[in-house]
């Protein structure tokens, strides 16, 4: 990686190269299986290969135990895809996180998304003890210092120099207190975040207002902001996200559109309803991408098609984002 760093890259990752070159980037999410079958990753990876610039691998998402994000990320590296491993503060203390990150770097992983983590009460081990030794901002800062200063959180030197990571963080423009959200983003930028992936955007006016404040603060010039999108699968899903998911805002318009999509299809005809819903879900998602691209400060999109990775290539192509650009050496050496 010395070569990559000598030309000014922090990590040399494909994502970093594309962002640096000013391309509108596309990332997608891949959920590892609740099991150890490598084939699941391979099948999902096949759908995403060449369609997106990098792939997020979730870290025990919604506090449900799944295959390790770093192990799944390594499988992607072997398949020629670029992973963004997600790392939460819920399951590991600063020792565990740093040790795992060194291992991830050794395995050819170059992007890491630093998260607080969903609370364990939502998952399948609600009686677990959580860690939260660090919070997500402290995590970003720790990884940035590991990379830039070659030191562990304790201040000791990392043998052989710092691991070359492109550092991501999340932002939820829809959480409360709304006025504080741009400041929290500013803290993540100050801590060293290179890119940001947002919560799913289903309230474009609110997101625009958020981005206006972010742009006024000049943050979009210091960090690449990828707006989160995802295809709805049914009216029920839209309603659930609107009414039940804390920190999410879903405009009624989308719920109504999903409802209208199956108007006239009898309830018994489940296959036809599923088809109609999914088509509308993808249509809405593509429209949103076009709207989001127009917003100042949006540097890319992050597609979260939860357990529906098949939708990603369709969305990317219909949104006119295919084929994906390349800059220099796009495939990482491992």
């Amino acid at each position: 990686m010395m070569e990559d760093r000598s030309n000014g890259y922090k990590s040399g990752s494909n994502l970093e190269r594309l962002i640096r070159a000013g391309h509108f980037v596309v990332t997608a999410e891949l959920g590892p299986p609740k099991g150890w079958q490598r084939e699941v990753i391979e099948r999902k990876a096949k759908l995403l290969r060449g369609v997106v610039d990098a792939v997020n691998i979730t870290d025990n998402q919604t506090a449900i135990v799944r295959m390790s994000s770093i192990a799944a990320g390594r499988i992607l590296v072997e398949l020629g895809l670029e992973p963004i491993i997600q790392m939460t503060c819920r399951d590991r203390n600063r020792l565990g996180i740093q040790s795992d990150l060194l291992g991830a770097a050794a395995l050819g992983i170059r992007n890491v998304l630093c998260l607080t983590g969903d609370h364990q009460s939502f998952g399948n081990h609600p009686t677990a003890k959580n860690v939260h030794d660090l919070d997500s901002i402290q995590l970003v800062q720790m990884v940035a210092r590991m990379r830039d200063e070659g030191i562990f959180q304790c201040g000791e030197a990392i043998k052989g120099g710092g691991p070359p990571f492109f550092i991501g963080a999340a932002a939820n423009p829809f959480g409360d207190p709304f006025e504080f959200r741009p400041y929290r983003l500013a803290k993540k930028v100050a801590a060293g975040a290179d890119f940001i992936q947002t919560q799913l955007v289903f309230d474009i006016p609110r997101f625009k207002e958020y981005m206006k404040r972010v742009v006024d603060m000049g943050l979009h010039e210091k960090v690449a902001i990828l707006a989160g999108v995802g295809p709805l699968k049914s009216t029920g899903m839209a309603r659930y996200m609107r009414d039940r998911v804390p920190g999410m805002r879903v405009a009624d318009e989308y719920v109504e559109r999903m409802k209208a999509a199956v108007a006239g299809i009898p309830k018994e005809d489940k296959a036809a309803r599923r088809e109609a819903w999914r088509a509308e879900g993808i249509r809405i998602c593509v429209e949103q991408i076009h709207q989001l691209r127009e917003i100042e400060g949006v540097a890319g999109i992050h597609i979260m098609a939860i357990e529906w990775e098949e939708a990603v290539p369709v969305i990317v192509k219909e949104a006119g984002l295919y084929p994906r650009p390349t800059v220099g050496e796009a495939v990482l050496k491992t």
Partner: peptide, 8 residues
């Protein structure tokens, strides 16, 4: 360092 994304 401030609220997580789940504050509503």
């Amino acid at each position: 360092n401030g609220p997580c994304g789940g504050s509503q």
